[in-house]
Simulated scan of single mutants.
Amino acid sequence: MKLFSLPASPFAARCRMMIYAKNLPVDIVEPPGGLGSETYEAINPLRKVPALDTGEGVIPESDTILEYLEDHYPEPSLRPEKALHRSKARLLARIADLYVMEPMFPLFMLMRSERPDKDAVAKQLDKIDWGLRTLDWYLDNKHGFAVGTHLSKADCALVPTLVYVTEMLPKFGKDKPLAFRDKLAAYWDGIQNDPHAARVISEIREGMQRMAAARAQQ
């Protein structure tokens, strides 16, 4: 089994975190020829990461991959035991996708401008802050995890998201992006001690540094 991944991708990082937590026999490789190559398009027509080659077919999209891995390798389970917690895990991942990561993508483009539009930046920051407030509202963190008593799919989604929040927003003047989000800030402080989370955090940061270095050479 093979996961096509890039270190800086927050969505591929979700899959890597589950693979590490379950200690799965999955090779992690970069897309052959790069994301836009014909070689990779022949593997995954979406030309995105992650994509999982199961040996029987290729599965794109991180949430679909996480579901497959959980079904195929049910132990140790990263699904919370209670139905309410399973629902909340899906909700937290959805909020992270739609209301934190999605409004963050325009900031990447604004970063490339010598004089970013201040109003455009402020608009996206407000959207992200609303998403963080909502995450803070629904977050459990009673046992150091997003929901329940052990690492789950929710943590796999939130950890990469919060790497981007804490690394990117200070570049736009939000020096303390988790200020006044007490549960979320406490969760972030604690989850970084988890070895699987720490590994993914390090990989993303190294990937971001590689991307920044590549842009500087252009």
Rank of each mutant, 00 (worst) to 15 (best):
A51D: 14
F105L: 15
A51P: 14
P170S: 11
Y164M: 00
A214M: 12
I19G: 02
P60D: 10
S37G: 05
S77L: 05
Q192S: 06
A157V: 06
G55K: 04
D175L: 15
L98M: 13
K153E: 13
L46K: 14
P25T: 03
A21Q: 10
E81V: 07
L178W: 06
F172C: 11
F105A: 15
D27E: 15
R86S: 08
L110V: 05
L125R: 09
D119M: 01
C156R: 11
L178F: 03
E203D: 08
A197Q: 01
D126N: 09
I43Q: 07
D53E: 09
A120H: 13
P106N: 13
F180N: 08
R90T: 11
A157L: 08
Y73F: 04
G173R: 15
L69Q: 00
P103L: 10
T166Q: 03
P31T: 12
C15W: 07
I201E: 02
L6F: 11
R133D: 15
F11R: 12
G148R: 09
L66H: 00
V29D: 15
Q217A: 02
K171R: 15
M18V: 02
S77A: 04
D119N: 06
T64G: 05
A122C: 04
M1T: 07
V147P: 15
M211K: 13
A122L: 01
R215I: 01
S5V: 05
D119K: 03
V165T: 04
S9Q: 14
L169I: 12
N44W: 08
K127I: 05
T149F: 11
D155Y: 08
H72Q: 04
I201Q: 02
E81Q: 09
K174C: 10
S152G: 07
S152M: 02
S5R: 09
L169K: 13
L6N: 11
A216L: 06
E67W: 01
H150M: 08
I204C: 01
S77E: 10
I201H: 03
L151K: 11
L158M: 03
E61K: 10
E114M: 01
S9A: 09
E114K: 01
M168G: 02
S202Y: 01
Q217L: 02
Q192D: 01
H150R: 05
R112Y: 08
Y20G: 04
G173W: 15
D129W: 02
P50S: 13
A216D: 07
I59A: 03
N44E: 09
V200D: 01
E38T: 04
Y73S: 03
A12V: 11
D182W: 08
F108V: 14
N23P: 01
S113P: 07
R210K: 15
V147I: 13
G173K: 15
T149M: 12
P170A: 07
P25C: 03
G190Q: 10
D194H: 06
P116L: 02
W188V: 01
M211F: 11
A198Q: 02
E206W: 04
L98C: 07
K88S: 00
M111T: 09
D194A: 00
E114P: 04
R86N: 04
P7L: 00
I128M: 04
L139W: 07
A213Y: 12
D155G: 08
E81W: 08
S5L: 03
M18T: 06
E56D: 11
A13E: 10
K22R: 09
K2E: 01
K118R: 12
M168C: 07
M18A: 02
Y20H: 13
R215L: 10
